[in-house]
Design a binder for these strands. Structure first.
Lengths: 140, 140
DNA sequence: TATATTTGCTTGCATTTTGCAAGTGCAAAT
DNA sequence: ATTTGCACTTGCAAAATGCAAGCAAATATA
């Protein structure tokens, strides 16, 4: 197996090797908040990811233990993509990006409200969402 | 002026348009923790950024109000790059990436100790580092 | 049962971005 | 006066991206 070499010992650079691109965290977002879990779900997201890029990102996320692919309960033609615990642990990272964004850019009002609410008690929000996501893991 | 179009209304995708690549946050890291502030400083970082990429990333970060370029007090041949308040506000994002990394990967022991300490009281750590960074802003 | 459609991709190809090496112009040190 | 340092720019090959089309298996429809 070909292990891609690290650029340095810095954990930040190592993390960016995993999700430092324009698409990976959007897939994680869709899994966390978008109620999306299939290839076509991700394809339909507003940003319009190209199908080959989606395939390569899903592969990368899977190889890095962020998402996990399994059989879909409804159909053999579908697959179910889910966040692993490691993927769920990206919630605080994504939250802080939203909070940063809220501070420096405009955004849809409903989302803004949610973020401000979450910001009030980050730990509570994180724990609650994490719990929900872990529950989703064992479903089916 | 050519404004690059947003991929969607999602603040996460907008943020990734700003710093969603393998290099931008490493430059921010160098400015935050590495005591680096010149072009050559960034070039010398362990990851070995290519000089043309560094130039383009610094330009992007500047255009997006994350860093600011000014005259260097020591020499007319040098320039000083500094984080803006908006750039300093990325501290919590970077912190959470470090914390995620600490949970899921190995890392240098001294850095690990710092991260664990910061994690104990994130708000205290954030406030203190932010204060130091803002002080650095007004120096010179 | 035959046909059409859905699903999750892969392939080909043009365009863009990256990475590497070399070069440039100005400032400063020797 | 010449060399060195600094902050880039340029050229070019290689890799990644984006777009459209194709494809096999599974499912839905006629």
């Amino acid at each position: 197996m070909e292990t891609s070499k690290k650029r340095s010992d810095c954990p930040l650079s190592g993390s960016l090797d995993v999700f430092g691109d324009k698409w990976s965290l959007l897939i994680v977002r869709d899994l966390m908040f978008g109620n999306k879990c299939t290839y076509n779900d991700f394809l339909k997201s507003d940003e319009g990811i190209a199908t080959n890029i989606l395939a390569s990102r899903l592969k990368g996320l899977e190889e890095n233990g962020i998402v996990e692919k399994s059989a879909h309960p409804d159909s053999k033609a579908k697959f179910l993509y889910r966040l692993t615990p490691k993927g769920i642990d990206l919630l605080p990272v994504i939250m802080e990006i939203y909070i940063w964004s809220d501070k420096h850019y405009e955004m849809p009002p409903d989302l803004k409200a949610t973020i401000r609410e979450a910001k009030k008690d980050k730990e509570k929000f994180t724990k609650q969402v994490t719990k929900e996501l872990k529950m989703r893991m064992v479903d089916k």
